Amino acid sequence: MKKTVFVLLAALAAAAAAGQNIALGERAPEPKVQCWLDGRQPAEAPMTYVEFFHSASRNSLEAIRHLQRISEKVGDRLRIVVLVHEPEEKIAPLLTPYLSEHLGVGCDPNGKLFTAYDVRYVPFGVLLGPRHRALWMGNTLQLTPEIIEKSK
């Protein structure tokens, strides 16, 4: 019975990971956004982390806090772009406190980037290197500064 449950859980995890439309090492869509929350675009950096956010997910907000802590450790080596496709008036009270030189919230009102990345669950993010090649992807709460350092 335990073996059956384990196999079922492993299959579900693989299916969820396969749902994303990005391949490691391949070029990913550039995170071009229509507007920036509070007009604050994050500074350029050698690597970009694209985080997909939805206010209905409690884990999405925890992922933003996690990214803020990572940003404090890696500094100007990482640019964090949080993408939202909800109205600005809804997400501004939640995300404005996390804006910084390295973390910005980009508006994707039509969800084009969510579709381009085939996002099916949040928190989900993609670490991009130079030329927008995918270096790491997955549940943002599993991202560590060590993963970022190894991905250079």
Rank of each mutant, 00 (worst) to 15 (best):
L24A: 08
V81K: 08
L95G: 09
F52I: 11
P87A: 06
A43R: 12
E88A: 14
V105M: 07
E30K: 11
V50P: 10
T140R: 01
D76K: 15
P42I: 15
E86P: 04
C107Q: 12
F114Q: 07
R40L: 14
W136T: 02
P29D: 07
M47H: 06
I148G: 00
P87D: 12
P29G: 08
F6H: 08
S151L: 02
C35T: 12
E51V: 03
L61D: 05
T48I: 10
L128E: 04
R40M: 13
P109C: 10
V5H: 10
D76H: 14
F52E: 11
A116C: 02
E86F: 04
P145H: 06
P145A: 06
I80T: 13
T140M: 02
P109T: 10
A116H: 00
E30M: 06
G104Y: 08
L128I: 08
L135N: 02
R133Y: 01
L9F: 05
I64W: 01
P29K: 03
V126C: 06
S55E: 14
L95C: 06
S60E: 09
L99V: 04
P87N: 09
A45L: 09
V119E: 02
C35D: 11
R79E: 13
Y121T: 09
V74Q: 03
E88W: 03
S57I: 04
R58L: 08
N21Y: 01
G75Q: 06
D118M: 02
T4W: 10
A15I: 09
K3M: 10
Y49A: 02
G129P: 03
V7Q: 13
A15Q: 12
I64L: 12
R65T: 09
A14G: 15
D118Q: 13
K150S: 10
S100P: 00
P46V: 05
N139M: 03
C107M: 14
N139A: 06
G129L: 02
T140N: 04
L24E: 05
P87M: 09
E89A: 09
L113K: 05
R27G: 01
K73V: 15
I147S: 00
I64C: 10
P46R: 02
L67E: 13
M47R: 13
G111D: 09
N21M: 05
K32G: 00
F52A: 12
L128K: 08
I22Y: 01
A13E: 13
S151T: 03
N110Y: 08
L127G: 06
L99A: 07
A63Q: 14
T96Q: 13
V81I: 14
